[in-house]
Amino acid sequence: MASQPARRRRLEVEDIGDIAVVQFVDKKILDEQNIQMIGDDLFRLVDELGRRKVLLNFANVEFMSSAALGKLITLHRKLQAVQGKLILCKIAKEILDVFKITKLDKILEIKPDEQSGLQAF
């Protein structure tokens, strides 16, 4: 029997009111297959579970490459298409530089902490 890639949990989702607060389980968001699965899980929140307000909390994330940015942009577009909203929060200084250099901080809403992220919806 062919073995299936481990389908371990990559996101922790907590509902606070009508806002889905998402924490990343991994400290490093790398590796195409891993990023693909994170993307699938994020898109499922919108496409299948009908969430319209998503707060991504990056508190656990220590390293992230450009490969993950595409998933965030696609999630942002998906939420925009259904009049929803994506907010990012608690991004480490170095990772914040990734968003600034790519100018994605201009199109993605970024808040310093979870509380200000929740209040921004």
Partner: peptide, 15 residues
């Protein structure tokens, strides 16, 4: 800006 890829070179130059 909303294209999902093509940011690697920019990040290398930036960092």
């Amino acid at each position: 800006i909303e294209r999902p890829c093509g940011r690697g070179l920019l990040l290398i130059r930036g960092f």
